[in-house]
Amino acid sequence: MGIISSLKIINEIAFNTFKESLKSRFFALFAIFAFIMLYASALGSMLSISHEERVLADISLLLIEIMCLVYALFHVSSALTREIQEKTIYLILSRPVPRHICLAGKELGVMITTAFIALITSIMAICVIKTRGLDVPSFFFAAVAGAFLKTAIITAFAFLFSFVSTSDTTAFVMSGLLYVLGHITSELGPLMEKASGAKYLMLKACSIIFPNLNLYSLRETAEAGFPLSIGALAAALIWIAAAYAISAWLFSKKEF
């Protein structure tokens, strides 16, 4: 299969995944939930006499990241089981669609959906901030982009976990744990300085394998004028590509 044909099929599957998400009731409820939470954050910020703009932006950014993450985790961890139960995977894989292409389409579809969630919830947040007569902080958009990158990395790993785990719950928990671990990977640096020998090698391996999600917590760095380094962006792409490559290999061995 040529590159152009492969890209076309990836695009078809990704767009279909996105469309399915938009039409699912779960997604609609999710949007309502997001709006209610953002509205609640506006009420909460009224309790803060000073720095209202900052408090409101922080709460919004936290909610946007959680929304994207929860959607990705819930969707991906149950995707395989759901597709087997509904037999939709049969209709795709019985066609001349290579499995790695199918996986790329599915992953891209989830990433497009999370980008869409980030976009919609950001618009909601901006509306809430503007309604309060405040300015949108300069770091807001960079921080949303960082939250999306974190979700994209976790999405790629969540697919990988869904292939190795025996249940949806395990895949969900493993992906959630990786999200937590990803935020403490940067703490390995000081530990490595003190360690030596096997301990050092183990810590070093962990620092490479576990994605450092703090690189994408861009709220503070963007405020200081350093939104996202090329290195951090490259690292995100490498983690996504590595997780995808292992997932594609596991998917090629999977029976349905």
Binding site: K23, E86, K87, T88, Y90, L91, S94, R95
Partner: peptide, 27 residues
């Protein structure tokens, strides 16, 4: 051409769109 037992189709779609989707996947 494979027809599994009771496959799922998205309830909000029209049949023509579903067929076009699978047709595209078939090249």
């Amino acid at each position: 051409g494979f027809l599994p037992e009771l496959p799922y189709f998205p309830p909000n779609e029209k049949p023509l769109n579903v067929l076009k989707y699978y047709g595209k996947l078939s090249g």
